[in-house]
Computed example of a mutant assay.
Amino acid sequence: MSTQSEVLDQPANPPAAQPAAAGTLGGERKGTLEKATLGAFIVVPFLALLAAVPLLWGWGVSWLDLGLLVFFYYLGIHGITIGFHRYFTHGSFKAKRPLRIALALAGSLAVEGPLVRWVADHRKHHKFSDAEGDPHSPWRYGESVPALMKGLWWAHIGWMFDEERTSQEKYAPDLLKDGATRVISKQFIMWTALSLLLPALIGGLVTWSWWGAVTAFFWGSLIRVALAHHVTWSINSICHAVGKHPFKSRDRSGNVWWLALLSGGESWHNLHHAEPTSARHGVERWQLDSSARIIRWFEQLGWAYDVRWPTPERLAARRTEPAADAA
């Protein structure tokens, strides 16, 4: 199992027939309109999240709304964790073509940006993790408390408004070469619209009312997107500022147990940075990692193969403290 993602060593430029612009929205710098749109997609769901408590107290949430929230939340989260992250970014396993496309679509429904751009940013993060060049390290401004507070804001949200963008030709040439992933990435706005409208459509049809559509949109779209955003961004910020470090890594990535269930196992972040290509992040028996469990099911069904499961020997070589089960 390689400790660095193999794709980082691929050629810096995609074939001339497949220009980088075909795989993304916009060029190498963010424009004013894009920043405004990004801000809207951050602020509106977050305002809905703030309004959720008084609204819940006033008129509650139906089982349908709750079901839509949970279903679309974990569909998108696992599309990110299994698809965008462990598969497309790090090559933790190989997938047959239908699964590859399904993972690209599921991750796009999380409304966290186009596939190619997401992967490029994350590969750059691993190359420079918590050092100069990392797009979103919370240690960017120093180690004092004020500097860390500023850095946490940057790692959580601020970095997304940086004008400069990661070069997709350099960090994601493999995805630019693939027609399906390139098209899915380019159609991100369409997948975003679908992700936001589906809960409302289902809610309206099931209840046969406009009010059912409105409440389903509120809980299944706005609240769900806000939760998914902040849980994912917490991996960038919180998991690089606090947490336990049972494995040797070259950065400050830590394990944060209370984010494990919501993050699909991504918050066992220390092991991930110690072994980036590992298909499992929560390697102790008690560590919840739903993404690894689903990958195991894919493997058993024959949809995924050459899965890079962590071996006891490699884990032992990386440990800085005894395994919890052995304590």
Rank of each mutant, 00 (worst) to 15 (best):
N270M: 06
V43W: 02
A216R: 06
G23R: 00
A324D: 14
D289H: 03
A326N: 01
Q287F: 00
G113T: 04
V242G: 01
G204C: 06
G302V: 00
V206R: 04
L105D: 04
R308H: 12
R250K: 13
L288I: 14
P14K: 05
V70A: 14
N13E: 14
S195K: 03
G302T: 03
T181V: 09
G151E: 10
V283F: 05
R314S: 14
K150H: 11
E112H: 13
P114C: 11
P312M: 05
W210M: 11
W219K: 09
I77D: 06
M190Q: 10
W233E: 03
A324N: 08
S209H: 03
L75G: 09
W118V: 11
W286Q: 08
P173F: 04
F41E: 01
A36V: 15
H136W: 12
P138G: 07
Y141L: 11
K177Y: 05
T181H: 02
H126E: 05
A304W: 07
F88M: 06
A22G: 00
G27K: 07
I202W: 09
Q187H: 12
S144W: 12
Q18H: 14
G27P: 01
Y74L: 10
A317S: 15
T181D: 03
G212C: 08
L152D: 11
T192W: 12
T166C: 08
F128P: 08
L75T: 11
A216E: 05
H156F: 09
H85W: 11
P276V: 14
W139I: 09
A326G: 00
G158M: 07
I184F: 02
S290G: 10
E313V: 14
R308E: 12
S291Y: 07
G204W: 09
V283P: 00
I101R: 04
H78Y: 13
